[in-house]
Design a protein around this nucleic acid. Structure first.
Lengths: 109, 109
DNA sequence: TTTTAATACCTTGCAATACAAAGTAGTAAA
DNA sequence: TTTACTACTTTGTATTGCAAGGTATTAAAA
């Protein structure tokens, strides 16, 4: 894929990544690699340097919590879980997303 | 609407505004106020300070051109038109948007 | 004539975001 | 003890959206 096309996609991702993270963690707790895998499966490519600060931001906002868990494969992992406040935010984002989809549909008529 | 909710929407708008502008100008040429009206009709609130730099950026990228036109109602207006390159970009953005919608659908299953 | 209002375009400074790149650290195998 | 793998973190940069304020033209009101 050419560079400009990737840039278009990167710009469009802005603002929906937080929505994606909350969506994923709404199903089950996960650590960073799990989340990256889920995003990859959904065809949403994200890199570590984007994800980690985002998880920390959402944790600081009270949308997520985490617990450490030992791993037999390497260093301990930070498993993130969504909070009640995170679920409220997710509902808010569902509404915002639906509105945005509607906006674009109107403009693309 | 509460502040946090507006912030969610503002963040999601990032990256799709350029798409909206090209969509609007794909139908007919327009000057800034026309475009703001169209966006408002589609429930996408944008302010002048956002729109003007964006139009200039897209013009500099070769996606738009403009011509001046006298007005009986005040100062002359800059009417923007989409270029062939702009239409190519619009097609690219259509694809990117459809992919993004599909991504979110997958994650929100 | 001068002032005011309306319209239109533009700029500046700030905050938030995504990303590339590099860094830190634990575990296990060579 | 060195290397490879995994995992988490930080730094610097570019882009974007927005609030706020500024410039300029025209026409109507004082």
């Amino acid at each position: 894929m050419e560079a400009s096309s990737e840039n278009v996609r990167s710009q469009m991702r802005k603002g929906v990544l937080e929505y994606c993270i909350l969506s994923i963690l709404n199903h089950k707790e996960a650590y960073a690699s799990n989340i990256l895998d889920e995003l990859k499966k959904a065809n949403m490519l994200v890199v570590e340097g984007t994800l980690y600060p985002l998880l920390i931001r959402q944790k600081n906002q009270g949308l997520l919590t985490y617990r450490w868990e030992e791993s037999t494969q390497g260093p301990p992992r930070k498993y993130y879980m969504i909070t009640d406040q995170g679920r409220e935010q997710l509902a808010e984002m569902d509404a915002a997303w639906q509105e945005l989809v509607q906006c674009i549909e109107t403009l693309r008529k």
